[in-house]
Amino acid sequence: MSEKVYNALFLCTGNSARSILAESILQREGKGRFNALSAGSNPAGRVHPYALDLLETMGHPVAGLRSKNWDEFAGQGAPALDFVFTVCDNAAGETCPVWPGQPMTAHWGIADPAAATGSEAEKRAAFTEAYRMMFNRISLFLALPLESIDRMSLQNRLREIGAEKIEA
């Protein structure tokens, strides 16, 4: 019997950095158990070049990553979603579409590295920090016994992961 493949959607406003990092991390770390997706309420239309550089440096494939509107995942023919995570505070406060599949939802807010100011090194450091935080949250998520945990316990644990202070 084959294992269920879960569909997880990561949302932020611009879909150029945080949600893209999360999509790529879960796609690789989920080892075929997850179909990771990302989108934005007001997509930037491009993936931030620092996000792409960092993902490549960390050994993630970047082919096919693109900034897209969340409407792609709310319409007819969209995949049934198992999980929807907002990764920015703006997207968490917006009225989201109705997602197919009655997904579990949680807010895993992370500061926007694309908004970082300062030198190039400081801006790239913001991307590295966002990656680290997202990687740690996704690692906690992947350790959950998804096949055996009840829905309410899972929902609570997803929210706890978003609230956890991720240490270096």
Rank of each mutant, 00 (worst) to 15 (best):
G162Q: 06
L54R: 02
E56A: 14
Q27W: 04
C12M: 10
A63L: 08
A22S: 14
C12D: 06
V84S: 05
A22K: 07
R137P: 10
M1W: 09
A115D: 08
R66D: 13
D71R: 15
N35L: 10
S41Q: 06
G40M: 04
M133I: 15
G40H: 02
A121E: 14
N136L: 13
D82L: 07
L158V: 03
M1L: 13
A74L: 10
E3M: 12
A126Y: 04
L144H: 05
N69R: 14
I25K: 04
L142F: 02
M58Y: 08
E72T: 13
R18Q: 06
G101H: 10
A130K: 01
R137T: 01
N156K: 15
P79A: 14
M104R: 12
L146Y: 12
L37N: 04
Y131W: 12
N35K: 13
G118Q: 05
F141G: 00
P79S: 13
A115Q: 10
L55A: 08
A44Q: 05
G40P: 00
P103L: 10
F83C: 08
A115I: 00
L52Q: 03
R66W: 02
I110V: 15
S16F: 01
I138G: 01
A168W: 10
S38N: 06
L65V: 12
P61F: 06
G75H: 12
K165V: 15
N15A: 08
I166S: 02
F127A: 04
S2R: 12
K4C: 09
A126I: 02
A44S: 03
P103V: 08
A130M: 01
L37Y: 09
A92L: 06
S139G: 13
I20N: 01
L55F: 04
W70C: 06
L144S: 09
T117A: 11
C96A: 14
W99K: 03
H107G: 07
V5N: 01
S153N: 11
R151A: 15
R151L: 12
V5P: 00
E122M: 07
K4S: 10
S119E: 10
R137M: 11
L65S: 10
Q102W: 01
V98G: 08
A114M: 06
A80Q: 15
A78D: 15
E56H: 11
A8C: 11
N35I: 02
C88H: 03
N15W: 07
A125F: 06
G162F: 03
R132G: 07
A63C: 03
T13R: 14
L11Y: 05
P79F: 11
S24R: 10
T117Y: 08
E129F: 01
D82Y: 08
D71N: 15
T95N: 13
T128D: 11
G30C: 05
R132P: 00
D89Y: 04
P103R: 09
T57M: 13
K123G: 00
I20D: 00
H107N: 12
N69Y: 10
I25Y: 03
